[in-house]
């Protein structure tokens, strides 16, 4: 590893949560704007997290603490690996460490709410994981590699070859962002939520750690989205901005649905979209 990679990794680790928090702030502001409200300051997510960090630690079970730390470390590691331009599929598998331990922490508490939330979170993971793998395989079809370094070296925007797979990726993004209609395990919005689903029993600093880890996750998924237009900065920014805007609008106009609907709908639509896209690729290559 040369100096450039190392500095890049350090930069990514420092900047990712800042970007994630800022994005969450903009998100809340825009949501408020859509609802005819003024909305919180852009820096609101940072205030929330700092406040939570200063609260008294209170847990049911020490496994919760163990699990949130593993989640955070796995998420940071994912972002670092992305910055090192490692293998996409490997990054994905490392990401599952964090996701699994988040669920394990919720399952470790004998509380009906968090148990229910954990089961729902597992279903969510079940929903998006195959889709992400399919997206990576699609990228491999175009660029002949799973390595991010090789994908970045591809000279045309991947989006042009895989527009439908990009849609599939946004399904995963929606689930990962906890946005309607797929916010079944825990929602950002109080009116959609009885208690707080999978996050019910995490409190104080541990909730803050979860939030930071979540920011890392979101930055990672957006970074994967950005691979689809990696050839020019303008294209990349437009693609990400449009994607995120669409996410916010969908979040505001859809209600939360049931897990069964989510699983069947996302798999059916996602898998058929992928196959159409693959067929398109095959047709082109002939």
């Amino acid at each position: 590893m040369d100096f450039k990679t190392i500095s890049f990794v350090i930069l990514a680790i420092i900047l990712a949560p800042l970007a994630g928090g800022l994005l969450a702030g903009i998100d809340r502001r825009l949501t408020a704007w859509f609802q005819g409200r003024f909305g919180p300051p852009i820096l609101q997510p940072f205030y929330d997290v700092i406040k939570l960090l200063g609260k008294e630690p209170q847990v049911v079970n020490y496994w919760q603490i163990f699990c949130v730390h593993i989640y955070l470390i796995a998420s940071i590691l994912c972002v670092a690996l992305f910055a090192m331009q490692a293998d996409l599929l490997m990054i994905f598998f490392v990401m599952t460490i964090g996701a699994v331990f988040m669920v394990v922490g919720a399952l470790a508490v004998p509380s009906p709410y968090s148990q229910l939330g954990a089961q729902r979170e597992l279903i969510q993971m079940l929903t998006y994981e195959p889709l992400l793998i399919i997206v990576f395989v699609g990228i491999y079809f175009v660029t002949d590699s799973f390595k991010i370094a090789d994908i970045l070296a591809y000279d045309r925007p991947i989006f042009l070859a895989l527009p439908l797979l990009y849609l599939v990726l946004t399904f995963a993004l929606t689930i990962k962002l906890r946005k309607s209609p797929f916010d079944i395990s825990a929602s950002h919005h109080a009116h959609q939520e009885l208690v707080r689903g999978v996050l019910t029993e995490y409190s104080g600093p541990y909730l803050a750690i979860l939030e930071i880890a979540h920011w890392y996750d979101i930055v990672l998924i957006l970074a994967i989205c950005s691979l689809f237009w990696s050839t020019s900065w303008i294209g990349l920014v437009i693609l990400l901005a449009v994607t995120y805007m669409a996410e916010i609008i969908i979040d505001n106009v859809t209600p939360r649905m049931t897990w069964k609907w989510m699983l069947t709908y996302v798999w059916a639509v996602g898998i058929s979209l992928s196959f159409f896209n693959m067929a398109l690729l095959y047709a082109k290559s002939f």
């Binding site: 496994w63 394990v104 004998p110 079940l126 994981e129 195959p130 793998i133």
Partner: peptide
């Protein structure tokens, strides 16, 4: 891909409930 996601669900569930206490 689908199978490996399912695998993760049943192992993760088992792992979690060992610690439910």
């Amino acid at each position: 891909a689908v199978g490996s996601a399912l695998t993760m669900v049943f192992w993760g569930r088992w792992l979690g409930l060992l610690m439910t206490s």
